[in-house]
Design a protein around this nucleic acid. Structure first.
Length: 486
RNA sequence: GGCCCCAUCGUCUAGUGGUUAGGACAUAGCCCUUUCACGGCUGUAACAGGGGUUCAAAUCCCCUUGGGGUCACCA
C-alpha cells in the first residue's frame, strides 16, 4: 500500500490561467480526497522553460482559492513533501534518470534535431506512427564516452522493450492494454537537463506517495510509459482514473477558440463559484439520481470515482446559466446586497447613493427575474435612475390619448399618501382612479409602468411603485406626461 | 495514417436482461398573471447500424459506422 489514506494531486502546468477542464480535474481530485479522508495536493508542473508565464502560478492559486478548492499541501504551504514546484526538484529527477541509465532501462540519445525530423518525415510518408528507431541504443561505451567528453548535447530516452503487452487498470475504463511496439522511446530528460512530464510525474507521484492519479483522458495514450517507469523502478503503481474530456459544442476537446475556457473569464462574467462548481461536477459524474443542485460540501459527501462517466461532455453554457440563476436565488439577501453594491459601483450608477433598505427592496422585486447580479442594473436601471427615454414599442402599444389625463388623476391620488405608503395603498389608488374614470385597470397599469420605468416589463407594477416611493412616482408620472408624445 | 478511448432526446444524464426508456437544460403550447419573470401542466425529441447470445436485450459479445484523444527535447 502506498499510503494508508488516499493522497491525490492536481498537477497543472502554469500556462497562465485555470482552464475549466482543469477545474473539473481539480474538483474530482478534491472531492475524492474529501470523501475518503484523504489529502489533496497542488503540484506545479513547470518543467518547460519555454512556456514560462509570469504570474501564472499566483493566478492559478488565486482562482483555486476563490472557488474554494483548498489544498492540504502545495507551493505556498510547506508540506511534508516539498518543494511542490517541479522546477525545484531537478536533481531528484537526474538521480532517478541515472538509476534507469544504470539499469539500461534508459539510454542517452545524441541524435540531432535534423536526424529526428528526417526520421519522422520518412515514417509519416509510410503512414506509420512516428517513433524513435533506437539508433543511439546501439552506441558503444567508447562512442558514448567520446560524445560526453566533447559535450555533445544529449537527451535520456526510455528504453521501451519490444513485443510486450503493457496492461493496466483504470477506475473509469477498467482494463486497458497496449502493445509496447506502439510505445515510443520517450524522452525523459531534455537536453537542457529538465525532465519531461513523463519522468517527473512518475517520480513525484511516487515520492509524494500519491495513491490515485486522477487526470484527463488525454493522458491515456502515454500511461503505458508511466506504467513502464513504475515497473522499472520497482514501485507500486497508483490507481489510475482517466476522466472523460470536456467538449466544445462541436464535440472537439474544449478549447479557447470556441469560447471562454478560463475560470476567471466566467468569474468576470458574473458566474457564481457555487454554480461553476455545481455545473462542472455534473459534467461526467452523477449520483445516480435526479438531483442537479449541489453545494461543494454536498458533493464532498456524495462523490465517487466509480460513478464517473466514460464519454466526453459538452460544456453547455445554457445549463450553467440556469444553475447560476438557481444558486443566486438561494443566496440570502444580505449576501446579494453586498454583491449588488459591488456591481453597482462598477456601473454609471456608482456615483449615486442608495440605502441598504432600498436596495433590499430592489432585490426582492427582481429576484425571480435575474440570473446574474449585474442584471439588476441591466434589466431594471429605473430603480437606480429615472428613465431618460421610453420604449417606443410600448408607447405605441400602451400609451393612449387618455393616458396623460388618467395618470394625472392617479398622481393626484398618490400625492395624498403618507410617506410610507404600502403596496396595497398603490393598488387601491390605482383601482380607485380607474373606477372613477370608468375605465379598466389596464388603462392605468401599463401607462404607469411605462412612466415609472420607461419599459414594458418588470416586477409587478405595485411592487415597482412601492419601491420607488410616492414622491418619485408622482415626479416620474409628471415627467412622462410631458415627454411622451404620440 | 498507427495506437487508444467512447457511443441513450439538440445538450447534460438515469438505466447494469423484462421500464409506456425517467429527469434536467433548451424548445413549443396552455394555465397563473391586465407586463415580464417565477411557478404549474402538457407537447416535440433518444437507445448509430448490422449480426449474434437469450424465452427476453438500451443493457452481454462481435463487426461496421461515427465521434474524440494521442502520436514534441509541451504538459
Amino acid at each position: 500500500m502506498i499510503h494508508p489514506t488516499p493522497r491525490v494531486r492536481f498537477a497543472p502546468s502554469p500556462t497562465g490561467y485555470l482552464h475549466v477542464g482543469g477545474l473539473r480535474t481539480a474538483l474530482y481530485n478534491y472531492l475524492f480526497a474529501k470523501k475518503n479522508n484523504g489529502t489533496f495536493i497542488l503540484r506545479i508542473e513547470d518543467t518547460d522553460r519555454n512556456r514560462y508565464v509570469e504570474g501564472a502560478v499566483e493566478n492559478l492559486i488565486t482562482t483555486l482559492k476563490w472557488i474554494g478548492l483548498n489544498y492540504d499541501e502545495g507551493p505556498d504551504n510547506s508540506g511534508e513533501y516539498s518543494p511542490y514546484y517541479q522546477s525545484q526538484r531537478l536533481n531528484i529527477y537526474k538521480e532517478y534518470a541515472n538509476v534507469l541509465l544504470t539499469q539500461k532501462n534508459a539510454y542517452r540519445c545524441f541524435c540531432t534535431a535534423e536526424r529526428l525530423t528526417q526520421l519522422r518525415e520518412a515514417q509519416q510518408k509510410e503512414k506509420h506512427q512516428a517513433k524513435y528507431d533506437k539508433h543511439c541504443l546501439n552506441l558503444t561505451q567508447e562512442e558514448i564516452d567520446n560524445k560526453l567528453e566533447t559535450d555533445t548535447p544529449f537527451v535520456v530516452r526510455l528504453n521501451v522493450p519490444e513485443k510486450k503487452t503493457i496492461k493496466f487498470d483504470d477506475v473509469v475504463r477498467q482494463h486497458i492494454e497496449f502493445s509496447s511496439d506502439t510505445v515510443d522511446d520517450q524522452i525523459l530528460i531534455k537536453s537542457d537537463g529538465y525532465p519531461t512530464y513523463h519522468l517527473a510525474n512518475v517520480v513525484d507521484d511516487h515520492l509524494m506517495k500519491i495513491t490515485h492519479v486522477i487526470r484527463g483522458e488525454e493522458w491515456l495514450p502515454s500511461t503505458p510509459k508511466h506504467v513502464l517507469l513504475y515497473d522499472f523502478f520497482g514501485w507500486e503503481r497508483p490507481v489510475f482514473a482517466h476522466l472523460p474530456l470536456l467538449l466544445n459544442p462541436d464535440k472537439s476537446k474544449l478549447s479557447k477558440r470556441q469560447g471562454d475556457v478560463a475560470v476567471e473569464d466566467y468569474r468576470g462574467k458574473g458566474y457564481l463559484k457555487e454554480s461553476l462548481i455545481n455545473f462542472v461536477a455534473l459534467l461526467g459524474w452523477n449520483a445516480g439520481d435526479d438531483r442537479e443542485f449541489y453545494y461543494l460540501n454536498e458533493l464532498e459527501e456524495h462523490f465517487s470515482l466509480e460513478r464517473v462517466n466514460k464519454s466526453g461532455a459538452v460544456f453547455n453554457v445554457e445549463k450553467l446559466n440556469w444553475l447560476n440563476f438557481e444558486h443566486l436565488r438561494q443566496k440570502p439577501v444580505s449576501e446579494v446586497l453586498l454583491m449588488l453594491k459591488e456591481e453597482l459601483s462598477k456601473t454609471k450608477f456608482g456615483k449615486n447613493v442608495y440605502t441598504d433598505n432600498y436596495l433590499i427592496q430592489v432585490i426582492d422585486a427582481m429576484r425571480e427575474r435575474v440570473s446574474f447580479v449585474k442584471e439588476y442594473a441591466e434589466k431594471s436601471p429605473y430603480f437606480f435612475e429615472a428613465p431618460e427615454e421610453y420604449d417606443t414599442d410600448i408607447i405605441k402599444k400602451r400609451w393612449k390619448d387618455d393616458s396623460p389625463a388618467l395618470l394625472k388623476k392617479l398622481a393626484d391620488n398618490i400625492s395624498e399618501f403618507q410617506a410610507n405608503a404600502s403596496k396595497d395603498d398603490f393598488e387601491h389608488a390605482l383601482h380607485k382612479t380607474a373606477e372613477e374614470a370608468g375605465v379598466g385597470a389596464g388603462k392605468l397599469i401599463h401607462p404607469v409602468r411605462l412612466a415609472a420605468s420607461g419599459m414594458g416589463v418588470g416586477p409587478g407594477v405595485y411592487d415597482l411603485l412601492v419601491v420607488l416611493g410616492k414622491d418619485e412616482v408622482v415626479k416620474r408620472i409628471n415627467t412622462a406626461i410631458e415627454k411622451i408624445k404620440i
